[in-house]
């Protein structure tokens, strides 16, 4: 299926884009993440959480959504 992926903060700096669409046929969020890592190797060193259809999910969650977001923590104030 075609999945729209949004990148925030430091993550978008690695991917050099704020969003993109990927064709992917896996089952779990973790599988999608492996696929993203294969495209952007240095993302492995970054901290972030994943949202699916605008809800934070764990890696074991089944991939059901059309929209995924990779969300890093910010410390600045």
């Amino acid at each position: 299926m075609l999945i729209r992926i949004k990148y925030f903060g430091q993550i978008a700096e690695v991917t050099q884009k704020e969003e993109e669409s990927l064709e992917f046929s896996g089952v779990l969020i973790s599988e999608l993440l492996e696929h993203i890592y294969s495209k952007y190797n240095t993302l492995k060193n970054k901290d972030f959480q994943i949202a699916q259809n605008q809800e934070l999910v764990s890696l074991e969650t089944e991939l059901s959504g059309k929209e995924i977001a990779l969300l890093p923590p910010f410390s600045g104030g």
Binding site: K6, Q54, L71
Partner: peptide, 16 residues
């Protein structure tokens, strides 16, 4: 969690 981007004025609200 409300995420705001000043450059494109997009904001997205994610459920936690």
């Amino acid at each position: 969690l409300l995420c705001y981007n000043a450059l494109n004025n997009q904001s997205i609200t994610l459920k936690i």
